[in-house]
Amino acid sequence: MNNPNWPIFAIFGLGVVLTLGVGFYCVMVTRNLIRALIGLEVLTKAVTLLLVLCGYVAGRMALAQTLAITLIVVEVAVMVVAVSLFLGIFRRTGSIRSTDIQNLKG
């Protein structure tokens, strides 16, 4: 705890943990497909913050920013696919609640 960056790490670290909690809770509890995607977005934000924070404390900001930018691009691609799937599901079943699409059982 002697590292001068400790207070910064502590406060932003706490923020990361809480945001991760919010995201996980949302993904686990929601029945609405779009809200599940929003939960995933919140989780991604938390991880981006964690990445930048670790880079700050380690003194590797250029690398941390590169990784964060790559992460954002990956996230966009995944979200585009997710929304495409969502639109496909909606058009075929007319519902956006996961309880109405439980065709897979066993």
Binding site: G23, L40, L51
Partner: peptide, 15 residues
């Protein structure tokens, strides 16, 4: 995606 978040958290801390 959830698995990804877990993996990245690990990577960040190792970083």
């Amino acid at each position: 995606a959830v698995a990804t978040v877990l993996m990245l958290s690990g990577v960040a801390m190792m970083f």
